[in-house]
Write a protein that binds this DNA or RNA. Structure first.
Length: 262
DNA sequence: GATGACCTGTGA
DNA sequence: TCACAGGTCATC
């Protein structure tokens, strides 16, 4: 996904199009896609006759509440998953992932009594469907992040700053592109140890995460950052023209400006 | 904490 | 054929 902005787009689509429609069938043809002990049989036993009554999100994860004593259905989009309702796919085309509509990529779908359907289409199969996930394993949602929460997240770890803000247990929602963009806008080196930030830098990072999410959300997604155009080998910093540095930080490909990110 | 594993498609 | 991909998990 699919970072927090795409997850929110998917949540909005679900909220608008999938609530209060009676589920009558379950197509869990890819049993591997069901995680945390969920089986196709259990899904078929639990969902028909129910409807979704709320679509919630924390970080990149989606939680669909069902009526009565039904399960909370968790959707996780992995690297390439998208929510498709009837014939509408949520969000902009994904980079780094195919957007073709291939039948084989429908890993999980639910049919509605009115003839429509909600489905997860995921070429890479790194997403998941779960029931009744432990939502509190995730940290505070990045879109609602307070300054105190940011301070707590970074002050308690000496891991690289980027690894810490991408750690879903500490802050839920930031992925590789958003983390690079926010750090680039914050003038902070992704490899610095998180607990080395001064109070001023923490405040700046907090403010920047918020404005980055707001701005890129308005533009249409995680791939619309200013750094994206330069996020290629040999790319130049859009702000000061310096050659960008490309390396691995926190296990992920990372682009940063050696001149203004310190 | 860094690393490799999971899985599959795409483009060089 | 290879490197690489907006994510997470277990393991050294």
């Amino acid at each position: 996904m699919p970072e927090i902005l795409e997850a929110e787009t998917a949540r909005l689509l679900i909220e608008k199009r999938a609530l209060n429609r009676e589920i009558i069938s379950v197509d869990a043809r890819d049993a591997w896609y069901l995680k945390q002990g969920l089986t196709p049989r259990a899904a078929r036993a639990a969902l028909p006759g129910r409807k979704f009554v709320a679509a919630r999100r924390r970080g990149k994860q989606l939680f669909l509440d069902t009526d009565g004593d039904g399960p909370v259905v968790g959707f996780h989009l992995g690297m390439s998953g998208r929510v498709v309702i009837d014939d509408a796919a949520a969000g902009d085309p994904l980079l780094y992932a195919s957007n073709r509509d291939v039948k084989d990529w429908y890993r999980f779908s639910l049919g509605f009594a009115d003839g429509g359907q909600i489905a997860l289409r995921d070429p890479r199969r790194l997403g998941a469907v779960v029931f009744d996930a432990d939502e509190d394993r995730l940290g505070p949602d990045a879109l609602e992040l307070t300054r105190d929460q940011l301070r707590t997240a970074v002050a308690t770890s000496r891991a690289p700053l980027k690894a810490v803000i991408m750690d879903q247990h500490r802050i839920a929602g930031l992925g590789n592109l958003l983390a690079d963009e926010a750090l680039w806008r914050s003038d902070l080196d992704p490899a610095r140890s998180a607990n080395s930030l001064t109070a001023t830098e923490q405040a700046r990072l907090h403010r920047t995460i918020r404005t980055t999410l707001r701005t890129l959300g308005r533009r249409g997604g995680s791939h619309t950052g200013d750094l994206m155009v330069a996020r290629v080998p040999g790319g130049m910093c859009p702000r000061d023209g310096a050659p960008l540095r490309r390396r691995t930080v926190g296990g992920r490909t990372t682009y940063s400006c050696p001149v203004h990110q310190v």
